[in-house]
Amino acid sequence: MLWDVEAEDWLVLGFEVVDGRSSDFAPDSPDLPLVVDSIGEIGRLSLPRIAQDWTETRWDRFVSDGAEAELFRGDSLLCTDLNPSNFLMVKRRVWAVDWAWPTRGARFIDPALLVLQLIAAGHTPDSAEKWAEQLTAWREAAPQAVDAFAAANLRMYRAAVDRKPEADWLKAMVDACQAWTEYRGVAPDWLMSGSRRTGEPSPGRTGAVVGRRQ
Rank of each mutant, 00 (worst) to 15 (best):
D98C: 04
F87G: 02
L77V: 09
F72D: 01
G66E: 10
A69P: 00
C79I: 06
L88V: 07
G66M: 06
S76W: 07
V90T: 13
V97K: 10
W95E: 10
M89F: 03
F72C: 05
D75N: 15
W59S: 08
R73K: 13
L71F: 08
L71T: 02
E68V: 15
S64K: 11
D65N: 15
L88H: 10
N83T: 11
A100S: 12
R93D: 09
D98I: 03
F87I: 05
K91N: 13
W99T: 07
G74K: 05
R61F: 06
D81E: 13
W59N: 06
D60P: 01
W59K: 07
L88E: 08
W59G: 11
L77S: 03
S76A: 13
A96T: 14
R92K: 14
C79W: 11
V94L: 09
R92G: 04
R73H: 10
G74R: 07
S64R: 12
V94E: 03
L88Y: 13
E68P: 01
D60R: 11
R61P: 03
W59E: 00
F62H: 11
G74D: 01
R93Q: 13
V63S: 13
F72I: 00
S85C: 09
L82P: 02
C79R: 09
N83L: 14
V63L: 05
D60I: 05
L78M: 06
R92W: 00
D98A: 02
L88P: 02
G74F: 01
P84S: 09
R92D: 15
R61Y: 05
L78C: 06
W95T: 06
K91F: 00
W95H: 15
V63C: 15
D75R: 15
D98M: 04
A100I: 11
M89C: 09
E70R: 05
A96G: 04
R73T: 03
D65V: 08
P84C: 10
V94F: 05
W59P: 03
D60M: 07
W59H: 14
D60Y: 02
R61W: 06
L78T: 04
L71N: 03
L77T: 04
E70W: 00
S76G: 05
N86G: 06
V63W: 02
V90C: 12
W95D: 09
R93T: 12
L78E: 00
A69V: 02
M89E: 03
A96F: 07
D65R: 11
W99P: 09
N83E: 11
D75L: 03
G74Q: 03
W59Q: 10
C79N: 15
S76L: 00
T80C: 13
G74C: 03
L82D: 02
L88I: 07
A67F: 01
R92N: 14
V94S: 04
N83R: 15
R93N: 10
L71Y: 05
G66S: 14
A69G: 04
P84V: 08
D81F: 09
S85L: 12
P84L: 11
